[in-house]
Design a protein around this nucleic acid. Sequence first.
DNA 1: GGATAATAGTTGATTTTGTAACTAACAACC
DNA 2: GGTTGTTAGTTACAAAATCAACTATTATCC
Lengths: 150, 150
Amino acid sequence: MTQPDSAEKDDFDLRNFLPFLLNQAAEESSLDFQKVYKNRYGMLRTEWRVLFHLGNYGEMTAKQIGERAKMHKTKISRAVHKLEQRRYLRRTRDENDRRMERLTLTPAGLTVYRELRDIARDYDARLAGMFTTGEAALLRMMLRRLVGMD
Amino acid sequence: MTQPDSAEKDDFDLRNFLPFLLNQAAEESSLDFQKVYKNRYGMLRTEWRVLFHLGNYGEMTAKQIGERAKMHKTKISRAVHKLEQRRYLRRTRDENDRRMERLTLTPAGLTVYRELRDIARDYDARLAGMFTTGEAALLRMMLRRLVGMD
DNA sequence: GGATAATAGTTGATTTTGTAACTAACAACC
DNA sequence: GGTTGTTAGTTACAAAATCAACTATTATCC
């Protein structure tokens, strides 16, 4: 592993490249939590995202979830189907605009959501525990800014 | 979108959940740069990652790349094949241990690497420009810690 | 030194994602 | 009020990721 670019100065360092670091961190930070909803509930990432949105925000349409989660509508469509099959959510067509349907969690879905939410909360605390309170707050703030949430 | 959990206090906020935020930020921050290597060189994410590792660190084996990039070996195997087809890299079997092969960029591969590296550098600067110098440094530090790089 | 286990990398089958075309319902415009 | 354009969501097909089984080579250990 010699530097091929030692002649020209290659001051670029992949290990500090933000998109790379963010991807690594995202991957790493999702892994343990993923095991829970995957092994315990047989859910995919797309599915828990939909579940979490409905649990956290309440009734939403597929469109709205797509906007908030930045997920493509086909992913959502399929996730909704799976969650419906498992009786975690119910869909009711909007009578004012019959193109869209209102999605809500069933009691069973809400139970699962609450369980996963509690685990998520602990998990988040564990991650945040790697930093001081101020640092963690700053981290969230910066990530929100990167995402355009502020 | 009413809060279904208003009875019990649901102080969990998906918008501040670190794994979610990290995923969003990673997605967002990869998108623009992805367009470059995708549209301009027809490369996949896996492929530019391998290319960047070889360009940035010099000669490596597939195994080593897998460890650093936390990519599964099948992904790497396929990415290496593609890059080889495009004559961006060359593989030579290690004579001491004939199971592995040393991967190096060809001059053509190095040229592409340098071009993408420069774009990456600019792009990174643009992202970092959303924060003060100190904040950006802290962000990188925190991400590295999350990834277990420190 | 020969059997057994481990390692580097590949291949094939399955699952998941991405892309584009589609249906159904509504909106806008003339 | 009918044509044209948009929007919500689905479906079909192609591309890519995941998982398990495989080959070839080296290491271990009796």
